[in-house]
Design a protein around this nucleic acid. Structure first.
Lengths: 246, 246
DNA sequence: CGTAGCTTTGAGCGGCGTCAAGAGCTGTGG
DNA sequence: CCACAGCTCTTGACGCCGCTCAAAGCTACG
């Protein structure tokens, strides 16, 4: 049904994500998957969602990795969130026309589209779908809050280590086990609120600590355990099965 | 209908907020207001929502000012959001059991409660109410994103100035025009991701710049204009009438 | 009138930013 | 297949913004 395979998703990310959000009926999952229209590709660096556009559809990331960001007046970029296969890129624009943020492809991506109208028709009939959409929104908000807490309160080392942990854990949640991290140090700097130079030095520290592989040019996790330890990372806030209610 | 009057809200904050979110029918507003049960007071410093509790109701702040926050393992506090009369304190827990954040009263507060069941019954009948709830969630997320951007990318002076601008503008949106800011420097530090000492020094800079009144002990805005200028603040992201769609 | 919480001040220092330049990859076109 | 251009990564020097520690004033309130 979905044509692309790659290291960042085997095409079933959306189905997996829906199940993680508690949509366990195969028929319901299929109903939602069936709404996905008009797939298209986006190349690394390209904007998937552009500033200023409002829309009447949800954009689903089917494959690859993307980030939601906003530019400041003085030309700096803050990355708010990362997106993986199965994520909705513009759920935060539902019923609300955000004007000044955007979503960029961090790797080559495949995206699909679901019309707001279609999803509303479906969720009017099926309350569980509605619930899943709420949960998804709440989960995204909690990820952003977690990032705010990191940026506001933690040291560079811990911030970056946590960023990487979140990456690993979220990929695992959709069934991807890959120790290569396709982020540039620039991306990390913009997400962590640090300068590139300092990110570089901190990554070298993480290599020294045995958390990352010593190969330059490109990051790969050497020891998941050590990384988690350095980060003092507690992945529970990502575990949707534990945080659901209602 | 609501018994308390005070500088931080004249009791109709919720009605005003609902209208700002696009619920312009008086009957619809009244229907929602009618769901508010069991008012209670919270004294300054007290937790309105405690860590770890999940709930089957929305908590509405009817009067006063509160903040959503989370403690880190090493005892620091990050404030995610401020709440004013009319705000839902735990909308982010709807369909999603957050465990480790809390809401504290920053001034003496009056809070009410709306059962999830009641609101679902109402919004099943009235699609516009559902839409307003979505908008409210999206608006809150956008405020948190804005805070993340500030903490990640801006200097202490701009961060604090913007915090104060947001305060002024949000109060004005519910009809309160008051130049006294009831936050402690500790609160500001925890929201801005700065130390109290540095916040103190930065506030003195704002006083020097004529943005804040020179009276120590307690903050009051001396010149709204100058404050906005120092902050390079563009309040449009708060203006719900411009950002709504659908 | 004493105590608790908030604000202010001072001294010293270190984490992280900025500037600048060079090295290593990757892709693209001739 | 090479050359060059454009990213990304790395390294060094230097300095400032903001942190920590510590102590003393203020205010409010019981």
């Amino acid at each position: 049904m979905i044509e692309v395979e790659g290291p960042l998703g085997t095409g079933n990310g959306l189905a997996r994500k829906l199940k993680n959000l508690g949509l366990d009926g195969d028929d319901e999952v299929q109903a939602l998957l069936g709404l996905v229209k008009s797939r298209r590709r986006a190349r690394r660096g390209e904007d998937i969602i552009k500033v200023g556009k409002s829309s009447r559809f949800l954009t689903v990331l089917l494959n690859g990795m993307a980030c939601r960001y906003k530019m400041t007046d003085n030309g700096r970029r803050q990355i708010f969130a990362f997106h993986y296969a199965g994520d909705f890129c513009d759920h935060h624009r539902y019923a609300f026309a955000e004007r000044d943020d955007a979503v960029a492809a961090l790797t080559d991506c495949l995206v699909g589209v679901i019309l707001h109208d279609d999803i509303e028709r479906l969720s009017a009939r099926n309350q569980r779908i509605n619930l899943v959409l709420w949960r998804n929104t709440m989960l995204e908000e909690s990820l952003i809050r977690e990032r705010l807490l990191n940026v506001g309160q933690r040291s560079a080392l811990e911030r970056i280590a946590r960023l990487l942990c979140e990456h690993i854990f979220r990929l695992e949640a959709i069934g991807v086990h890959d120790h290569v991290i396709p982020l540039t140090q620039i991306d990390i700097a913009d997400a962590a609120g640090l300068s590139v130079v300092h990110v570089n030095r901190t990554i070298q520290d993480l290599r020294e600590l045995g958390a990352l592989s010593k190969h330059s040019h490109g990051m790969r996790v050497a020891s998941r355990e050590r990384l988690v330890h350095v980060a003092r990372f507690d992945g529970r806030y990502l575990d949707m099965r534990q945080v659901m209610s209602g």
